[in-house]
Every structure is written in C-alpha cells, then in structure tokens.
Design a protein around this nucleic acid. Sequence first.
DNA 1: GTCTATACAAAGATAGAC
DNA 2: GTCTATCTTTGTATAGAC
Lengths: 173, 173
Amino acid sequence: MIPDELDPLRSATPRARQIVDAARGLLEREGWDRVTMRDLADEVGIRAPSLYKHFANKDAVKAVLVGVALAESGAALRPVTDVASLLAAYRAIARAHPDLYRLATVGPLDRDALPAGLEEWSGAPFFEVTGDPHAAQALWAAAHGMAILEIDGRFPTGTAPDETWAELASKFA
Amino acid sequence: MIPDELDPLRSATPRARQIVDAARGLLEREGWDRVTMRDLADEVGIRAPSLYKHFANKDAVKAVLVGVALAESGAALRPVTDVASLLAAYRAIARAHPDLYRLATVGPLDRDALPAGLEEWSGAPFFEVTGDPHAAQALWAAAHGMAILEIDGRFPTGTAPDETWAELASKFA
DNA sequence: GTCTATACAAAGATAGAC
DNA sequence: GTCTATCTTTGTATAGAC
C-alpha cells in the first residue's frame, strides 16, 4: 500500500517498534496527554530510563506515530474515485482512531521528523479528486474541519449528521 | 454588540476580571500550555494559591476565556452579508488572536461552563448566510478547518493562499 | 541495552495561619 | 483574600552495576 521509502518504521529496531506499538495502544485508550514515559515503559515491560536508549524523548515517539497516521491515512484514501467516497474514507479514519487522528493533525507539524515525501503522498488523493491545487486544499481543510469537530464532539447535536457530510460533498462534486 | 446575558464576565468580580485579562495577555503571548498558575499570579501581583480563591482551577479560567472568544467572534461576524465576507471575517479573527482561537475551538467544549445560549449565538451567522442547517454546519466546519490549518502552519506552502479561501467561498456562494 | 537508584524542574493543587 | 509551606505527577536526565 505505502511505498517502502515512506514507511516511518523503515529503519526501526524490533524494540523501537514494540515501543511504538505500545505507545499507540496507550494513545488510543487514553489520549496523548495521558501517555507518560513511565506508563509506556510499563507497557513494554522495561523501566522508563531505558526508553531513552531508543528515543531521544517523548516527542520522538510522537513523531513516529504521526508518520504512522499519515501513512495509514494515505493508504486508506486510495484508490481515488469520487469526492463523496474520498470524504467517507477520510471520515472513517478519523472516527476509527480519533486520538491518532488528533495527534497527527492538531498543532504544528514537525516536518523534519517525517520521511521525506510522506506528507505530500498522504494528501495527494485530494489533488487527484479535484484536479486543482486550491480546490484540493479547500476540500482537505473542509474535511479536516468536519472530522475534528465531529470527534471532538463540537457539533451542537453531539455528532455530525450524515447529511452535513453529504452537503459538503455536494459542494465539491 | 453582544447581548448582556451572554457576557461571560457578567457576574465576575473586579479581581476575577483582572485575572482573566492577565490570562488572556499571557495566552496571546505564549500559548495556553505556557500559561502557568504561577506566571498568571505574578502578572496579577499575587501568589499562585490566591488564584484558587477566585477560580476553582486552571480550567475554570480557560472556560471564561473560551466564553470571551465566542462572544467576540459572534460580534465580529455580524452583521451578516454574504459568504465571502463572512469567511473573511472568520479568517481575520483566527489570525488576529490565534491562541485565543485555538483555545476556543480545539478539543472538547465544556458547555456547562458557558453562558446558556452563547455557543448558539456565536454560530448563528453561518445559519443566516446559508439559510440551511446542514449547509451552515458544513460551511462552519470548512471555515474552521481552513483557519486552524492556517494558523498552525499546516498548509505545505506555509500559509493558506487567499486563493484557497476564495475557492471555498465560491463553493458555498 | 537493561537495570536500580536518584535527582531535578515544572506545574497544578491544597492546608492552614493571618 | 492573601500568605507560606508543602504535596504530587510528570518529563527528563545521570551514574554506575550487570
């Protein structure tokens, strides 16, 4: 699915992979703020100081998880067919792994910590479906707005109705 | 501009207002994570524990600031004319006070801590300009997606081009 | 690479005196 | 309502044994 050279775990040791897996589990159960280095070490079965032999700090763990999120998202959005299907796939990703989605999309992005080309590859489906860079960015931003507001429970009704997603799709169809 | 009964500072004591003002200043200079109860107290000229005589905890300070942000946003979006002007006003708010915008729009919303009706009043311009609840929600979500990605520097080019905002406006015109 | 032990600096929060 | 003193959690880090 994802090109080998874009895999954020490409050169990770088995132990590093294990740590990332554990971090993802904790993240999806508790949210990033509640992932502590101590709990992460517990989950792996080692002591907290040992984590620093594999990752410089907590942010380095986060960077890999962000890469994983972008890679999985880019894969799930392919192959590209039409706007409605793309939006449906995008929504599904955010709802399936809300904390991972949040981690990868909220706040600044440390681009230097990502495999070169991954960010672009992850967003390319929006260009493919619109055929125009500005329309692609606008559609991506709209999809993100819908997704993040939905998983954060910000829509007054509690969850975003299917009709609102359909309305958005109709505008860009 | 804003109805009196929606004012989040309506029943605040002078000291509480002073604390909120100081918190806003710190927020806009440093971001919410760097607003500490100690720094906030310093700014006001008292000791950190004294803050807890005026606010239950840091989240209670945040709740008032979120209310202030919603109130100012709702005021700045009025009067409503057309989609393009509404989006321009929305974008201007986010760019003028990015950390306040983030505080009010990122993550879950503690609705119980807000004046009743404020959230709805703040978002009503989107209903006014579209005349349809689903289109209003979709437009609001799209505007938020654009705004938050722009102030977080998430657009690959660095900042969202005016053309992308124009593209979005054209879809909902 | 892992462990134990230890340390330190934020940061939110509380208890109790005045 | 303000103070001083104190507690806890957490990220981060080091030293040194195995």
